[in-house]
Design a protein around this nucleic acid. Structure first.
Lengths: 205, 205
DNA sequence: AGTTGTATCAAGCAAATGATGGAAGCAATC
DNA sequence: GATTGCTTCCATCATTTGCTTGATACAACT
């Protein structure tokens, strides 16, 4: 499974990778049940049987998508941690918010699918309970909320969760919130980042 | 439509009201496409045709559900505003968080369906774009973020959105987050409320 | 030239799903 | 007792959806 995903990503022009990219976006917009294999196939301009040939059943493709976005998040977090290492806390927070929000606004499927996973049940068994991301503790450590990566308090974990949720919500809610504040996309993103920085700076510095 | 909903709620034992209550929960758990009319009918122990007799097509029932939860939120917010009126800001925040989080943890469908609406597209036309809640400005005013209910700055609106999102996320994410922090439901709810109070108090007082 | 393996599609099947029509039950009214 | 109006169910339909089968194209290797 994992190797299947890696192989697909090696060549982004391969049919398998193209299907995965399209599936990410469409699953992210319509959710698992809201997405049909035909929708994905159409987006890539192929027959559904070609899709099945590459990825097997719908649930497997969905699982690959979840793995893909999780891996994306993991890599991005590592990247951010490298940048902020050694800097003062306020700076760390500003950079981390800037980077993570920027990344997620670029790939809003990630936020959508993450929120989807929070609560959605699927009719036929659980496709989703295969891995609960462990980077929460790492972020807590990075933010100076814990002295030990392996031993993070519940309080700190909850704080980190709430930070991540705040970002995801602004990303996923864009189409819903923008009419309320009457901003174009660019201004909205800027505003969201500022709000996130304000909230986190006052709470953690 | 609205009168249809009101009529249904007048007698909570009426078949129409029972269907609505079941529909709320199931739509909240599985989302729009993840829910079938048969699932709802089964939960109420009736034939699907009875469901169609009372509510018409699936989209109409879903719309009624959204109206129902919106109305619930509106009423709860009015109730909270009455309680906090005149008190100092810190107290207002604590009570508001306590009350709203308590209400939403009691009816998690509301948070689920709210988050669903943030981003989910539906395949057949939009059932959802019929009303963007206007209470955001009222909350901002209540929290002392604006002097005028009718003229709330974008900054303040964004802050309110982020507060509401934080609550919804903790409610909707319960099943996802609880294994991470290893708490029973009661402790999790308490912890979530404390985290929310901490974040909002440090940001707004 | 023939074999092999990979990739693609057209056609189609079985089950699930949204929705309807008509009959039956049942209480209130005439 | 018949009529009316409301509510419920059984049977059924058309469409959608997940998925498979069998055939075809095509390149690489023998």
């Amino acid at each position: 499974m994992a190797s299947s995903l890696e192989k697909a990503k090696q060549n982004p022009n391969s049919m398998k990778a193209k299907i995965l990219t399209a599936a990410r976006k469409i699953f992210g917009e319509y959710g698992y049940h809201g997405t049909t294999t035909r929708m994905i196939a159409k987006a890539v301009n192929i027959d559904i049987s070609t899709l099945y040939y590459h990825w097997g059943e719908k649930g497997d493709l969905y699982e690959a998508v979840i793995r893909d976005i999780s891996e994306g998040m993991r890599l991005k977090l590592i990247e951010v941690e490298k940048i902020i290492k050694g800097r003062p806390l306020a700076e760390r927070i500003e950079i981390a918010v800037e980077e993570m929000a920027g990344y997620l606004f670029e790939y809003p499927e990630i936020s959508n699918l993450t929120l989807f996973r929070y609560f959605t049940k699927t009719r036929h068994g659980s496709l989703l309970d295969f891995k609960v991301p462990e980077y929460i503790s790492d972020i807590a450590y990075s933010m100076g909320l814990a002295d030990d990566r392996k031993n993070v308090s519940v309080e700190s974990k909850m704080k980190v969760l709430s930070i991540m949720n705040a970002i995801h919500s602004f990303v996923s809610g864009e189409n819903f919130f923008r009419p309320m504040v009457n901003l174009d996309r660019e201004s909205y993103i800027k505003m969201a980042k500022e709000t996130l920085k304000f909230l986190n700076l006052s709470a953690f510095t």
